[in-house]
Amino acid sequence: MCLAVPAKVIEIHDELATVEVRGVRRPASLMLLPEAKEGDYVLVHAGFAMQIVTPEDVSEMEALWAEMNGAPRTVESLEKRDG
């Protein structure tokens, strides 16, 4: 029930956006995410945009590899970026 899907905001009219998921367009309300802009990627759950998402960061995975190969732990740097 709690799975949200990432979608691209195509256009916005008032509080209603048209978003695209894998080529399919559908409406999504921006009532809970008024800061979303056209072109943003957003997580959509039950017809509402819930958060702006950044495309998955490849460097995150590379940092994990480096860590397991002896580099210092990356958790702190991840937390810093989050905060």
Binding site: M31, L33, L43, M50, E60, L78, E79, D82
Partner: peptide, 20 residues
């Protein structure tokens, strides 16, 4: 608490959603 879902989760979440 560690956040391994950084691309979507912020430490303060979605304040507008919680206010609603």
């Amino acid at each position: 608490i560690i956040n391994e879902y950084n691309r979507a989760v912020r430490s303060d979440g979605n304040p507008a959603a919680r206010k609603t």
